[in-house]
Measured scan of single mutants.
Amino acid sequence: YETDHQDYCEVCQQGGEIILCDTCPRAYHLVCLDPELDRAPEGKWSCPHCEKE
């Protein structure tokens, strides 16, 4: 299903190369994640907010 994702990072509120959560509309820079990621994850990815739930 399609979600309207943010076009900015949930953490720093800036645009650029962001990865999109497959569960919610949030988006993140790899370096803004904690722990940060070296590269975009393959397959489905859930953001830290969704992982907690």
Results as ranks from 00 to 15, higher is better:
Tyr8Gln: 15
Cys24His: 00
Pro25Asn: 06
Arg39Val: 05
Cys32Thr: 00
Thr3Trp: 14
Ser46Ile: 13
His49Leu: 08
Leu20Gly: 15
Lys52Cys: 05
Ile19Pro: 02
Arg26Ser: 13
Leu37Met: 11
Cys50Trp: 02
Pro25Phe: 11
Asp4Glu: 11
Tyr28Ala: 13
His29Cys: 12
Pro41Trp: 04
Cys12Gln: 00
Pro48Met: 10
Gln13Cys: 10
Cys21Lys: 01
Arg26Thr: 12
Gln13Pro: 01
Ala40Val: 10
Thr3Phe: 15
Pro48Tyr: 03
Cys9Ala: 00
Pro48Ala: 12
Ile19Arg: 09
Ala40His: 03
Ile18Lys: 08
Ser46Gly: 11
Asp22Gln: 15
Pro35Cys: 09
Glu42Gly: 12
Val31Phe: 09
Asp38Gly: 08
Leu37Asn: 07
Pro48Arg: 10
Lys52Arg: 12
Glu53Phe: 08
Tyr28Gln: 03
Pro48Ser: 06
Gly43Ala: 04
Thr23Gly: 05
Ala27Val: 12
Asp38Thr: 07
His29Asp: 02
Pro25Gly: 06
Glu17Gly: 06
Trp45Tyr: 14
Glu17Val: 03
Cys24Trp: 00
His49Tyr: 04
Ala40Phe: 03
Leu30Trp: 13
Tyr28Met: 15
Cys47Pro: 00
Trp45His: 09
Asp38Phe: 10
Lys52Ala: 05
Ala40Gln: 14
Pro41Ile: 10
Pro41Cys: 04
Asp38Leu: 06
Cys32Leu: 00
Leu20Val: 10
Ile18Met: 14
Arg39Met: 11
Gly16Glu: 13
Glu42Ile: 04
His49Glu: 10
Leu37Thr: 05
Glu2Tyr: 15
Leu30Ile: 05
Cys9Val: 02
Pro41Glu: 09
Pro35Phe: 06
Asp4Trp: 09
Lys44Arg: 12
Gln14Ser: 07
Glu51Ala: 06
Gly15Asn: 10
Glu36Val: 11
Pro25Trp: 08
Cys12Lys: 01
Cys21Trp: 01
Asp22Arg: 13
Leu33Thr: 06
Asp22Ile: 11
Lys44Thr: 05
Thr23Asn: 13
Glu42Asp: 03
Pro25Ser: 09
His5Pro: 10
Tyr28Trp: 14
Tyr8Phe: 13
Leu20Cys: 12
Tyr1Trp: 15
Asp34Ala: 06
Glu10Cys: 12
His29Trp: 02
Pro48Asn: 11
Lys44Asn: 03
Gln6Cys: 03
Glu51Ile: 03
Pro25Ala: 13
Ala40Asn: 07
Gly43His: 09
Lys52His: 04
Pro25Tyr: 05
Glu17Leu: 05
Pro35His: 10
Glu10Asp: 14
Gln13Arg: 12
Gln13Trp: 04
Tyr28Cys: 07
Thr23Cys: 06
Trp45Val: 09
Glu17Ile: 04
Thr3Pro: 09
Cys9Gly: 02
Cys50Gly: 03
Lys44Cys: 10
Cys50Lys: 00
Gly16Asp: 10
His29Lys: 00
Arg26Cys: 02
Trp45Lys: 10
Gly15His: 15
His5Ala: 15
Ser46Asn: 03
Gly15Cys: 01
Ile19Ser: 07
Leu33Trp: 11
Pro35Ser: 10
Asp22Tyr: 08
Pro48Leu: 07
Glu51Trp: 03
Thr3Leu: 15
Pro48Phe: 02
His49Ile: 15
Cys21Asp: 00
Val11Tyr: 13
Val11Arg: 13
Lys52Gly: 08
Asp4Leu: 13
Cys24Ala: 01
Cys47Gln: 01
Asp34Ser: 08
Gly16Phe: 08
Val31Thr: 05
Lys44Ser: 13
Glu53Arg: 05
Glu51Tyr: 02
Asp38Ser: 09
Glu53Leu: 04
Cys9Leu: 01
Glu42Pro: 08
Gly15Gln: 03
Leu20Trp: 06
Glu2His: 14
Glu53Trp: 03
